[in-house]
Computed example of a mutant assay.
Amino acid sequence: MELTTVWFGLIAVLWIGYFCLEGFDFGVGMLLPVLARDDRERRVLINTIGPVWDGNEVWVLVAGGATFAAFPEWYATLFSGFYLPLLLILVALIVRGLAFEYRAKRDDHTWRARWDLAIIVGSFLPALLWGVAFANIVRGVPIDENAEYVGGFFNLLSPYALLGGVTTLLLFLTHGALFVALKTDGDIRHRARALALKVGVAAAVAAVAFLAWTQASTGSAGSLVLFAAAALALVGGLVAALRAREGWAFTGNFLAIGLAVAGLFAALFPDVMPSSLDPAWSLTTTNASATEYTLTVMTWVAVFFTPIVLLYQGWTYWVFRRRIGTQHIPA
């Protein structure tokens, strides 16, 4: 197997990890005003993701760095063409991180309410815009013969792209609600599970529509299998939630997101960024890749350091695996 194909697969794995892990972070942040009825319950929700949210963000940093090193042409075209939405995502993530750190610095209701709003908006924007961005990457955007994006901002807001944004938004809301149901006890747990069922049905409808549209437009045999598996996992997760099996419900939604993202990359391959103007101008794993030497060095680095990162992050989740409730939050 060529190293370009290997690195395309590794970048896909990094994005799968990011959406599966950071997805429930976004969901919890967006659900802050919905599930919490007072400040103590809001603190419970924030504490469910407090030990892990920053580690989950590492996946997108590594994905961006790997794209830059392995496929510099892809990185250049993507970040220049999608400059505004990616800038909005970056600002939202920065403000959201500040909110987690500064919310408790003052014992003032207005202070906390403003930082809570920052968490909500900082979770909502990436949850929506990542779906819009990936939908455009898979479907194709105006790229000329010089590998430059020649469209405008509104070219990125097609009905298909907006459906992709709504799909990720609803999937992450469901993911967050299931994570809260899995990690909390008491009234919050029951409210989260009930909400996950309601939002999950809407997410299933949006996801089926988006994945079917993708398959009809650019799909392959591999993407069809992965999309079908994602749909089954999502339905299985909702059935488990209906039976109050939060662990299986969260696992089902986790797999649904992961399989759906894998299907998008399968539909994209061997392109990395198709041109909607002329297929001959599309960026592929071949014409957008770095040198063989660069890919070889990166492969050895990944072989040694990836297991360490996985073990450390797995250990973090194991240490903070217990449920929490308002009884654990001091007045």
Rank of each mutant, 00 (worst) to 15 (best):
M1K: 10
E2G: 11
T4I: 00
T4N: 15
W7D: 11
W7G: 06
W7M: 10
G9Y: 11
L10G: 09
I11V: 03
A12Y: 04
V13C: 00
G17D: 07
Y18W: 11
D25V: 08
G29W: 11
L31F: 08
L32I: 11
P33Q: 06
A36G: 06
D38A: 04
R40S: 08
R42H: 12
R43S: 15
V44L: 04
L45N: 01
I46L: 06
G50C: 02
V52T: 11
W53F: 09
W53D: 12
D54M: 06
N56G: 05
N56P: 03
V60P: 00
L61H: 12
A63P: 01
G65C: 01
A69D: 02
A70F: 05
A70R: 04
F71G: 10
A76L: 13
G81Q: 02
F82I: 07
P85W: 13
L86M: 11
L87A: 15
L88E: 11
L88K: 05
L88F: 15
I89Y: 09
L90D: 06
V91K: 02
V91W: 06
I94C: 09
V95W: 08
A99N: 12
D107C: 03
D108N: 15
R112D: 11
A113N: 14
I119C: 08
I119P: 01
L125E: 01
G131N: 01
V132F: 09
A133T: 08
A135E: 00
N136M: 03
I137W: 04
I137Y: 08
V138S: 04
R139H: 15
G140Y: 07
I143V: 15
I143N: 01
D144A: 03
N146H: 11
A147K: 07
E148V: 14
L156D: 09
L162W: 00
G165L: 01
T168A: 05
T168G: 00
F172K: 05
L173K: 00
L173R: 08
T174F: 03
H175E: 12
G176R: 09
G176L: 08
K183Q: 14
K183T: 07
D185C: 00
G186H: 09
G186Q: 10
R189S: 14
R191Q: 12
R191K: 14
A203P: 05
A206V: 06
F210N: 00
L211I: 06
A212D: 12
W213E: 04
W213M: 07
T214N: 11
T214A: 06
Q215K: 02
T218D: 12
V225R: 04
A233Q: 02
G237W: 13
L238F: 02
V239S: 06
A241N: 13
A244G: 02
W248Y: 13
G252F: 07
L264F: 15
A266M: 10
A267N: 15
L268K: 04
V272P: 04
V272N: 07
P274V: 03
S275L: 05
P279H: 04
T284R: 06
T285K: 03
A290C: 00
Y293P: 00
T296D: 10
T299L: 15
F305T: 15
T306E: 02
P307L: 13
P307S: 14
I308G: 09
L310I: 10
L310D: 00
L311G: 12
Y312W: 14
W315E: 15
R321S: 14
I324P: 05
T326F: 01
Q327I: 00
